[in-house]
C-alpha cells in the first residue's frame, strides 16, 4: 500500500472533491496501482537522462527559447472577447461581473 485512506481524503480535499465511501475506496485502489507502476519505472537507470516535462522540450534549438515567444502587441495573437461573450458561459453574472457565492476564507 502506497497511500492510505487518510491521504486520499487529503488530496480530495485539496482538489475540492467530495468522495463517497465507495469512490474513496476505488481511488485508493487506483492510486496504489498507479504508484506501483511508478515504482517499476523508478527501477530504470535515469542518471544520464534529462528530465522532460514538456513533449517538445527536446526540440528547442540552441537559440533562446523565447524565440517562440510572441511580441507585446495588444490583440496581436487574438483580440479580447466582447464582455457579453466572456460572461456568456458563467453560471452567474450581472452583465458586468462574474458573480460567485460570497467568498469565505477557509
Amino acid at each position: 500500500m502506497k497511500v492510505t485512506e487518510k491521504e486520499v481524503a487529503h488530496v480530495a480535499g485539496l482538489a475540492n472533491l467530495e468522495l463517497t465511501a465507495e469512490e474513496s475506496a476505488r481511488m485508493l485502489h487506483d492510486l496504489n496501482a498507479i504508484l506501483s507502476y511508478i515504482d517499476r519505472l523508478n527501477q530504470m537507470e535515469t542518471a544520464n537522462v534529462q528530465p522532460l516535462a514538456q513533449a517538445p522540450g527536446l526540440m528547442i534549438p540552441g537559440e533562446a527559447a523565447d524565440d517562440c515567444a510572441r511580441d507585446d502587441i495588444e490583440g496581436g495573437l487574438r483580440k479580447s472577447l466582447p464582455r457579453e461573450e466572456a460572461l456568456e458561459n458563467a453560471p452567474a453574472s450581472d452583465g458586468t461581473f462574474f458573480r460567485v457565492p460570497k467568498v469565505i476564507e477557509r
Binding site: R70, D72, I73, E74, G75, G76, L77, R78, K79, S80, L81, R83, A86, L87, T96, F97, F98
Partner: peptide, 24 residues
C-alpha cells in the same frame, strides 16, 4: 510595464471596464 498580459494578447490597461480585457 507590458502592453499585454503574460500569456495572451489582452491589454493590461488599468481602469478599463470590468471583464473587457479577457480571452479564452
Amino acid at each position: 510595464l507590458t502592453a499585454t498580459k503574460i500569456f495572451c494578447s489582452c491589454s493590461t490597461r488599468f481602469g478599463d471596464p470590468p471583464n473587457t480585457n479577457t480571452c479564452p
